[in-house]
Lab assay of single mutants.
Amino acid sequence: RPMNAFMVWARIHRPALAKANPAANNAEISVQLGLEWNKLSEEQKKPYYDEAQKIKE
């Protein structure tokens, strides 16, 4: 299954978030990633939607 825009973004940002929160488990990191993603504007998300579309094609 191809990655969606959030997954493209999260793949880039997960390592830094995990390093900054070494005690957090994957579920907690995923929740935090979701919160951070939701704070982004549509303009900030656009490159990730574009990349996800390329992956689908």
Rank of each mutant, 00 (worst) to 15 (best):
P47C: 05
Q44F: 05
P2K: 12
A27Y: 14
E36W: 13
L33A: 03
W9V: 00
P15F: 08
S30P: 01
P15M: 12
Q53G: 05
H13A: 08
I55T: 07
E42D: 14
P47R: 06
N38P: 01
D50I: 14
M3G: 06
Q44K: 07
Y49R: 11
I12R: 08
P22D: 02
A20P: 02
P2V: 14
K46P: 00
Y49N: 04
A23W: 15
K46C: 04
E42M: 13
E43G: 08
L40D: 00
G34N: 13
P15H: 10
G34W: 15
K19H: 07
R1N: 11
L17P: 01
E36F: 09
I29F: 02
R14H: 05
A18Q: 13
K39M: 08
H13R: 14
N4Y: 08
K45T: 02
G34T: 15
E42N: 10
F6D: 00
L17N: 01
Q32F: 11
L17V: 12
P22V: 03
I29S: 01
A5G: 09
N26G: 10
N4P: 03
E36K: 09
Q53K: 13
I55V: 07
P15S: 09
N21D: 04
P2Y: 14
A24E: 03
E42T: 11
I55N: 08
W37V: 00
H13W: 12
L33G: 00
K56S: 12
A27G: 06
I55W: 08
N25M: 04
V31M: 12
G34E: 15
E51I: 15
A16T: 09
M7V: 06
I29L: 11
I55M: 12
E43M: 10
S30D: 14
Y48A: 01
N25C: 05
E57H: 11
Y48I: 01
A16P: 04
N25T: 15
A10D: 05
L35N: 07
P22E: 03
I55F: 09
Q32H: 04
L17H: 03
A5V: 02
E42S: 10
R11K: 13
Q32R: 11
R11D: 11
Y48E: 00
R14K: 08
A23P: 02
F6A: 00
K54C: 06
V31F: 14
S41H: 03
N38W: 08
D50T: 08
A18E: 15
R11I: 11
E51W: 13
E57V: 10
Q32M: 15
N25K: 07
L40Y: 02
I12D: 06
K39A: 09
R14P: 00
I12T: 06
I29M: 04
Y49L: 05
R1A: 12
S30K: 10
A20L: 12
K56H: 13
K39H: 04
N38A: 14
R11C: 15
E28M: 13
R14W: 13
P15T: 09
E57L: 11
K45C: 01
E43D: 11
L35R: 10
A16R: 14
P22Y: 03
E42H: 11
L33H: 00
H13P: 00
S30N: 14
D50R: 10
N21A: 03
E28Y: 09
E36I: 15
P47A: 06
K46A: 10
N26Y: 15
I12V: 08
S41A: 05
L40W: 02
S30T: 13
A52F: 11
K56L: 14
P2R: 12
P15W: 10
H13E: 03
D50C: 07
Q53E: 12
Y49C: 04
A16N: 07
Y48G: 01
N21M: 11
M3L: 11
R1P: 13
I55S: 06
L33R: 00
K46N: 04
E51R: 11
A18R: 15
A10S: 09
N4V: 09
L17G: 01
V8R: 06
N38G: 10
K45P: 01
A18F: 07
W37D: 00
L35Q: 10
E42Q: 11
Y48R: 00
K54P: 04
S41N: 08
A10N: 02
A24Q: 04
K19Y: 06
E57C: 09
S41R: 04
H13I: 07
L40N: 01
R1S: 12
W9S: 00
Q32K: 12
H13V: 09
P15R: 11
M7L: 12
K56M: 15
E43W: 07
S30M: 15
E42Y: 15
H13Q: 09
K19G: 04
F6I: 01
K45G: 00
E51M: 15
A27M: 11
P2T: 12
Q32V: 10
E36P: 00
Q32L: 15
N38V: 06
E43L: 10
A52V: 08
I12Q: 08
E28S: 07
A16Y: 12
S30C: 15
L33T: 01
G34C: 15
L33M: 05
I55H: 08
A18K: 15
L40P: 01
R1C: 15
Y49M: 08
A27S: 09
G34Y: 15
S41M: 03
N38T: 08
A24I: 06
P15I: 12
A18H: 10
R14G: 12
R11L: 14
L35A: 08
K39Y: 04
Q53P: 02
K39N: 07
R14A: 10
K46M: 07
P2N: 13
A23D: 13
N21F: 13
R14Q: 05
I12C: 07
A52W: 12
A27P: 03
E51D: 04
P2Q: 13
K54R: 14
P2D: 14
N26L: 10
W37T: 00
L40S: 01
R1I: 13
E57G: 10
E51G: 03
A5I: 02
Y48T: 01
N26F: 15
L33Y: 01
G34L: 15
W37P: 00
M3E: 07
N26M: 10
N4E: 09
K39L: 09
N21V: 02
E42L: 14
N38Q: 10
H13T: 09
A27H: 14
K45I: 02
D50K: 12
A20G: 06
V31E: 09
A16W: 09
G34V: 15
E36D: 06
R11F: 12
M7R: 09
N38H: 06
I12G: 03
E57N: 11
E28I: 07
Y49S: 04
M3Q: 07
K45Y: 01
R11Y: 12
P47L: 04
K19N: 05
D50M: 14
D50F: 10
K19C: 07
W9Y: 13
A20D: 05
S30R: 13
I12W: 05
E28F: 11
A27K: 14
R1D: 11
A24F: 14
N4H: 08
Y49W: 07
H13S: 05
S41E: 03
A20H: 06
P47T: 06
E28L: 06
R1L: 12
L17A: 04
W9T: 00
L40F: 03
P22G: 03
S41W: 01
A5D: 01
I55Y: 10
A23S: 12
V31A: 13
A10H: 02
L33P: 01
V31K: 14
G34I: 15
P47K: 06
A5F: 02
A18L: 13
E36S: 07
L40M: 11
A52C: 05
E57F: 08
K46Q: 12
V8Q: 03
A18I: 15
K39Q: 06
D50N: 08
N21L: 08
A5Y: 01
E57Q: 11
E57Y: 08
G34K: 15
S41L: 04
K45Q: 06
Q53L: 11
E57W: 06
N25D: 10
P47W: 09
N25Q: 05
V31L: 11
A16L: 15
M7C: 14
N38K: 13
A18Y: 07
D50E: 12
N25Y: 03
L35S: 06
Q53W: 06
Q44G: 05
V8C: 07
S41V: 03
W37Y: 02
D50V: 13
